[in-house]
C-alpha cells in the first residue's frame, strides 16, 4: 500500500520536534562516546543558525561541561558575530568558549594577498583597505538548464558598486584563496579536539551537504554532522525548540566569507530557503513535477527543469563528498 502523503507546503515541517531532537542527541552521544571514543565535542560557532543548533545539540548530548565552543573570526567577519556567539554559549550553559582570531594564520597563507591580486586583475582600482568585494551568481534562476555565471562585485568607499563577470583564472584564484578561511577553521577545531580528546561536530545542513555548498576538508571536515539530514526549515524548528537566542534566529543566513555582506541565496542557492526546502523535498522524495507545481504555484515544466538542476548539482559536486580513492594495487 502506498502511504506517501500528498505533497503540501507543510510537508517539510517536523511533526514532533522534541522526538527528533532526542533521537539526534542520542545518536550523537553514541557516535562520539562509543564509536569515536571521544569525551565530548568541539563546535565552531559563527553566530549563524546551523552552528547554533549544533552547539545546542552537543550541549544536550554530552552536557555543557563536555562541549567547547570556538569562535574563529577573521578581518572580513561580521563584527556582531562575537556578541551573538557569547549569548549563544551562555544560553546553553557552555562555559568553555574560545576566541581564536585566524587573521594571522590567513596572512601567513597569503589568503588575502592572493585573493586581492585576482580581484585587481578584474578591477585595477580595487584597494582592499577601503573597498569591499564579493562573488555573486547571476540570477538567471534555477528554472533554467544553463547554470549561473559568477560575477565579481566591488563596493567603493562612497558606496558605489561595480560588477563584472568572472573569468576562469580569477574565479578559481578568488575561491581557492578564500577557502583558506574554512580550512584554517577546521585546523583550529582539530587542535582543540585533539587537545581535549573530543570530536569535531560539523555544522553543514542537508542543502550544504547535498548541493555541495561547503569546502572540502574545510567546513566539510568533521567527525560527525548531526544536522546533515535536516532541511533549513527543520533546523529553524530545532533552533526554537532548543532555545537559540532570537537574534540568531532572525538573522539572514550569510556566507561570512567575503568583505562585502552577502546572503547565501545571493552566492549559491538562488532561491529563498523556504522555497528551496519544499522543491528539494519534492525532488528527493519522488513527487512528480505536476504534483509539486500545483501546490507551489509553478508550471510542471519549470519544476522539471528545477529537478534537473538539482540532479546536476548533486552529480557535479560528488567530488566534494568523496573520500580519497584508495582501491589501487594491493600486493
Amino acid at each position: 500500500m502506498n502511504t506517501k502523503k500528498p505533497f503540501s507546503k507543510d510537508i517539510i515541517y517536523l511533526e514532533n520536534v522534541a522526538e527528533v531532537t532526542d533521537k539526534i542527541v542520542e545518536k550523537l552521544r553514541i557516535d562520539v562516546n562509543q564509536k569515536l571514543r571521544r569525551f565530548g565535542g568541539v563546535v565552531g560557532i559563527s553566530g549563524g543558525i546551523d552552528s547554533s543548533v549544533c552547539l545546542g545539540l552537543a550541549a544536550k548530548a554530552f552536557g555543557p561541561d563536555k562541549v567547547t565552543a570556538i569562535m574563529m573570526p577573521e578581518k572580513d567577519s561580521s563584527p556582531e558575530s562575537e556578541m551573538l556567539a557569547r549569548k549563544l554559549a551562555a544560553a546553553f550553559g557552555v562555559k568553555s568558549l574560545h576566541l581564536d582570531n585566524i587573521t594571522g594564520a590567513l596572512d601567513g597563507f597569503r589568503c588575502y594577498e592572493r585573493r586581492d591580486e585576482a580581484v585587481k586583475r578584474v578591477f585595477p582600482e580595487y584597494d582592499p583597505r577601503t573597498y569591499k568585494m564579493k562573488i555573486v551568481v547571476k540570477q538567471r534562476g534555477l528554472f533554467n538548464n544553463l547554470p549561473p555565471m559568477f560575477s565579481l562585485t566591488i563596493i567603493a568607499p562612497d558606496g558605489s558598486q561595480k560588477d563584472k563577470p568572472l573569468h576562469t583564472n580569477e574565479y578559481l584564484q578568488i575561491v581557492a584563496s578564500s577557502n583558506f578561511k574554512q580550512r584554517s577553521r577546521m585546523t583550529t577545531l582539530y587542535y582543540y579536539a585533539e587537545a581535549l580528546h573530543y570530536a569535531v561536530i560539523g555544522t553543514p545542513n542537508k542543502h550544504e551537504q547535498e548541493q555541495g555548498f561547503f569546502v572540502k576538508y574545510g567546513d566539510g571536515g568533521a567527525d560527525v554532522m548531526p544536522i546533515g539530514n535536516l532541511y533549513k526549515t527543520q533546523v529553524y524548528q530545532l533552533a526554537k525548540y532548543l532555545g537559540v537566542p532570537q537574534e540568531i534566529i532572525d538573522r539572514t543566513p550569510t556566507t561570512d566569507t567575503y568583505s562585502a555582506e552577502q546572503t547565501q541565496e545571493e552566492f549559491f542557492y538562488q532561491l529563498p530557503f523556504e522555497l528551496m526546502d519544499r522543491f528539494w523535498y519534492g525532488y528527493e522524495n519522488g513527487y512528480s513535477p505536476e504534483e509539486v507545481a500545483k501546490v507551489m504555484g509553478e508550471t510542471p515544466e519549470r519544476v522539471a527543469a528545477l529537478y534537473n538542476n538539482f540532479e546536476r548539482k548533486r552529480r557535479t559536486t560528488d567530488y566534494l563528498r568523496m573520500e580519497p580513492i584508495r582501491d589501487y594495487y594491493r600486493g
Partner: peptide, 13 residues
C-alpha cells in the same frame, strides 16, 4: 548542460 557534461564551472571555463 542539461545532460550534465558541463556544470557552472564548465560554463565559466
Amino acid at each position: 548542460f542539461k545532460e550534465g557534461f558541463l556544470d557552472s564551472m564548465g560554463l565559466v571555463m
